[in-house]
Simulated scan of single mutants.
Amino acid sequence: MNTPHEWITTPIGPGILRGALDLERTDRGVLPHRLPAHARAQIPDGQLAMAEAQPSGVRLAFRSRATTVELDVIATKRVYPGAPRRPDGVYELLVDGRHAGRASARDGDTLTIDLASGASHTRPGPVETLRFGGLPDAEKGIEIWLPHDETTQLVALRTDAPVHTQRPGGRPVWLHHGSSISHGSNAATPTGTWPALAAAHSGAELINLGFSGSALLDPFTARTLRDTPADLISIKIGINLVNTDLMRLRAFGPAVHGFLDTIREGHPTTPLLVISPIHCPIHEHTPGPSAYDLGAMSEGRLRFTATGDPAETAAGKLTLTVIRDELARLVDRRTATDPHLHHLDGLDLYGEDDHADLPLPDDLHPDPATHRLIAERFARLAFGRGGPFAGRNR
Rank of each mutant, 00 (worst) to 15 (best):
V331M: 03
E52H: 05
L249F: 14
Y80S: 06
L232V: 10
F62Q: 00
T9C: 12
D363L: 09
D107A: 11
T269R: 15
L347M: 03
K77Q: 11
V274M: 02
M50D: 14
A187T: 10
L206K: 02
E6I: 00
T224L: 04
I74V: 13
T151W: 09
L35T: 05
G46R: 14
A291H: 06
L115A: 07
G266H: 03
S276I: 00
A37G: 13
S179R: 03
R250I: 13
R171D: 07
A187R: 06
V331F: 07
R372A: 15
G29H: 07
G266F: 01
P229F: 08
T110H: 01
P14D: 05
M297H: 08
V69T: 01
F304E: 06
R106S: 12
G351K: 00
P14M: 00
D45A: 06
G134N: 05
P281R: 03
A379D: 11
R392S: 14
R25I: 09
R264W: 05
G15E: 12
Y91H: 13
M50Q: 12
R303T: 13
I144E: 01
G351W: 02
L115I: 12
V79W: 01
R333H: 15
L206C: 07
V274D: 02
E265Y: 05
R78V: 14
T189G: 07
A100R: 09
L320A: 01
H371L: 10
D109T: 10
A314K: 11
L197T: 11
L157N: 04
R264E: 02
R392Y: 15
A196P: 05
T370Y: 06
N186F: 14
D354W: 01
P55K: 04
A369V: 13
G184K: 00
A41G: 12
D137C: 04
N240L: 03
T189C: 09
A53E: 11
D149H: 13
H285N: 09
L216K: 06
T3W: 13
A105E: 04
L225P: 00
